[in-house]
Design a protein around this nucleic acid. Sequence first.
DNA 1: TATAAAATTGTAATGATTACAAAATTATGT
DNA 2: ACATAATTTTGTAATCATTACAATTTTATA
Lengths: 135, 135
Amino acid sequence: MDFVNHLSTNNIKPSLQRIKIFEYLYDNREHPTVDTIYSDLVSDIPTLSKTTVYNTLKLFIDNGITSTVTIEDNEVRYDAIMEEHAHFKCDACGNVYDIEIDMSDLKFKKMNAFKVEKTNIYLKGKCNKCLITKN
Amino acid sequence: MDFVNHLSTNNIKPSLQRIKIFEYLYDNREHPTVDTIYSDLVSDIPTLSKTTVYNTLKLFIDNGITSTVTIEDNEVRYDAIMEEHAHFKCDACGNVYDIEIDMSDLKFKKMNAFKVEKTNIYLKGKCNKCLITKN
DNA sequence: TATAAAATTGTAATGATTACAAAATTATGT
DNA sequence: ACATAATTTTGTAATCATTACAATTTTATA
C-alpha cells in the first residue's frame, strides 16, 4: 500500500502527520480511538498534537478514505478499510474485529419508502479468546 | 400497553417520572435524545431534572426495557421497542425510522471465532419525503 | 406518626470534541 | 534563491454532553 499515493489521489496533501496517521490506521486493524492513535504516534512524532489527529481524521472522512465505527455511545473508533464489512465487538475484552459479510442477503420489508445509501452492521458477544480464558 | 405493569414486572418501581418517560419513549417512535425527552416532558412535569432523565434511561437499559441507538457519533438516541428490528436514518432530515428485518438471512464468514449475542443493523440514505421535497 | 429507604433534583466536575489564533511549514511568483 | 502567500500544525481556551455527588423530597416501613 502506497500511502502517499493513496492520499494524493484522494485530494489530500501527504504531510508527514497525515501519512503516519493513515499508515497507523491501515496497519492497526483494531479500530483505534483518537487517544490510542495519539498515544501510539507521539513517540514517533514528538510534536504531534491531539488536535491534529482530530483534524486529520475529519479530513480523511470528508475525503472518503476513513469511516467512523460507532458501536458504543461513549467511544468513537476509526477504520481505514472502506470495503464492505461488518464488525464484531467482544464485550469481555472490548476488542472490535472485522467480519466478512454478504449484505445482499439482507431482506428488508417496506423499504420502498427509503433510498438506502449505506448499510451498517455490527455484532456483539464474546470472542473465543475470552470464552476460553474467563469461562 | 400498561406502563405501570410493564415497569413493575421488570423490577422498576413505577414512579411518576419513570412512567412518563417510558410512556414518552414508547409512544414517540422517532428515537428521541435525552434533550428531546427532557424538553417535551418538562411542561408536563415542571420539576423534572435532566439528571433524572439520564438516571431513568440508565435504569431502563440495565433492566432491559430500553436500548440505545448509536448511529452518529455525536448523538445518543433511545428506543423502547425491544423486538428485533433495524433502523434507517435519513441524512437529509435526520429522522430515524424503524425497519422490519429478518436477520436470520445474514451470512457471516469465519464466525466460528465468536459467540454472537446481539446483531445491530442500521441503514443510511434519504427518506422519500426528503427525496420528493428537496430534489 | 416517626424513621428508614429510595427517588429526584441542582450544582459542580469530568472528559471528549471543537474553535480559534499563533507558529511552523510548504508552495508560489519573481 | 528569496520574499510572500497559502496551508498545515499546534496549544490553549471554549463548548457540550454526561456523570458524580450531596441535599432535598418523596415513598415505604415499623
